[in-house]
Structure formats: structure tokens, C-alpha cells
């Protein structure tokens, strides 16, 4: 865990109510995909946890949905503005669990952390299929980004305006996608459906309201098959078989 003052390089809308922010600063504490950061915001007591979308040596990006006052304030920020951020939080995805063919399942803004994961899997020459689910066309995002990495991308929308009508699990029923390990991130009902219906081994990134984000306040505990675990420290990524729904 490292507290770093970052400078905003870009902060632009990429889909309905959804923004991508690129920040410059010391990213050395961010070590793997699926990790998150805690952002301090003026006038807010608790920091806002947001997953890492993309990281390199000097910059990292987040993709966030405006859901409240905190994220609304973030959307108003401009290049050059500074943010105090705790980096290197959480236990992320295990890229070595996948042998050769990975299936990535993203719901809404949950697609964001899968991009860094795809980059890491790509570096290991693994074959990647991405299935992204959204409510409607104006929410669809990051498709070209995943395609740019060489991934095969399918989209599902609830209203059928883009791709398959329905959920990501409907895409899996209709298409014959080969994989030996899956990774999922999205809203909890989607993750529950994924864990119940998607066959084989996999990992999912869970959501929970957090306090410290660093494992010492125990505000975000969940019950797992191995006992209580902290989403912020032991997760947010958990093995499919360990989660109690």
C-alpha cells in the first residue's frame, strides 16, 4: 500500500454516465490486475474504491460510473488536477490459473478491470474471449480496446440494441466458446448467475461497501466457504468455489 499524489492527464466520458480518467504518478505499488485504489475526495470522509483499468510504469487509468456525489465530483475534474490516492490495494486475478484459453465476463463498468487482466493474459500468449453485458447501446464501452489486444469480443444488451439480447450468460448459451478458466467482474446479481451457470473453474471480483480498503476495519467482510474474508484485502477477487451466495 502506498499513498501517492497523482496528476490527472485525461478525464473524459466514454459511455453513458461513465468516465475514464488517466493519472500520472508513482504506480509502483500497483502489481496486478484486479487490484483497486482508494481515492480521497474533497468534502468526503471515506475514500472511494475504484478498480484499476490499465496500468504502466508512469500512469494508470480508472473507468468509473457516476453513481453519487463523490463520483460526480470526479467527473468535474480537469487535466492537471491532483488526487490523493492509496494504491496497491486488494488481491487481484491469478493469471496463471488459466492454461491457454481465458473467458472474460464483464457487466457494465465491471468490464474495466478485465482490460488490464486481458493485457496480462495476452503477454502470456493466451487466447482471450471477452463477453460484455450492458443495459443498452449507450452504455457499451471498451469493445475496441479488447479487440485491440486480439481478443474475440461478444456483446449482450438487455434491450437487444447491440449484440445478443439478454445477459452475458445468454451469449454463453448461444455461442460455443472454448475456455479453461473464466474471470468475471460486474454487478452482484450477474456474478451470482455466472457462478451458478458457467461451467469450469473461475474467479470473480466482488463488490462491497468499504471502509479503510486496506484490511483493518473489517467493514467489508463476507462469509466464504473458508470463513469470513475481507473483500478489500483477501479479495476483491475470489475463487468461484469459495463464494457463498
Amino acid at each position: 500500500m502506498k499513498e501517492v499524489r497523482f496528476t490527472i492527464l485525461d478525464n473524459d466520458p466514454i459511455a453513458a454516465n461513465t468516465w475514464k480518467m488517466k493519472l500520472s504518478g508513482d504506480t509502483s505499488a500497483i502489481c496486478c490486475s484486479g487490484e483497486f485504489v482508494q481515492i480521497a475526495l474533497e468534502g468526503k470522509f471515506l475514500r472511494r474504491p475504484i478498480s484499476v483499468h490499465d496500468v504502466d510504469w508512469e500512469t494508470f487509468s480508472i473507468v468509473y460510473k457516476v453513481v453519487g456525489e463523490g463520483t460526480a465530483a470526479m467527473a468535474r475534474m480537469l487535466p492537471g488536477d491532483k488526487l490523493d490516492i492509496l494504491t496497491g490495494l486488494g488481491t487481484g486475478f491469478s493469471i496463471d490459473s488459466c492454461q491457454s484459453k481465458a473467458l472474460l465476463l464483464g457487466g457494465g463498468v465491471g468490464a474495466a478491470p478485465l482490460y488490464q487482466l486481458a493485457k496480462e493474459l495476452c503477454a502470456q500468449q493466451k487466447e482471450i474471449t471477452v463477453v460484455l453485458g450492458f443495459n443498452k447501446a449507450d452504455e457499451v464501452m471498451l469493445v475496441e480496446d479488447f479487440e485491440g489486444l486480439g481478443a474475440k469480443v461478444y456483446v449482450a444488451t438487455m434491450d437487444g440494441s447491440v449484440g445478443t439480447k439478454g445477459f452475458v450468460t445468454d451469449v454463453l448459451r448461444l455461442k460455443n466458446i472454448g475456455y479453461d478458466f473464466f474471470y468475471a467482474c460486474g454487478p452482484m446479481p450477474m456474478l451470482k448467475a455466472v457462478c451458478e451457470s458457467v461451467k469450469g473453474r473461475g474467479e470473480v471480483s466482488l463488490e462491497e461497501r468499504m471502509g479503510c480498503g486496506a484490511g483493518f476495519c473489517y467493514c467489508c467482510s463476507i462469509q466464504t466457504k473458508n470463513g469470513p474474508r475481507r473483500v478489500c484485502k483477501d479479495g476483491p477477487v475470489f475463487k468461484k468455489e469459495d463464494i457463498v451466495w
Binding site: 468526503k44 470522509f45 471515506l46 463523490g70 462491497e208 461497501r209 468499504m210 471502509g211 476495519c217 473489517y218 467493514c219 467489508c220 467482510s221 463476507i222 462469509q223 469470513p228
Partner: peptide, 23 residues
Amino acid sequence: RYGNPTPRVAECTEGMINSVGLQ
């Protein structure tokens, strides 16, 4: 003790509410 169900934390002006429940 496992403690209370989540959410266990709420943002407030210049403060917060917690209900961890002695986990």
C-alpha cells in the same frame, strides 16, 4: 463472531457510521 450483515459502513459529513458488529 462474524459480526453484522453488510453494508456495515456509511459516509457522513466529516464522519462515518460503522456497524461491524464485533467481528
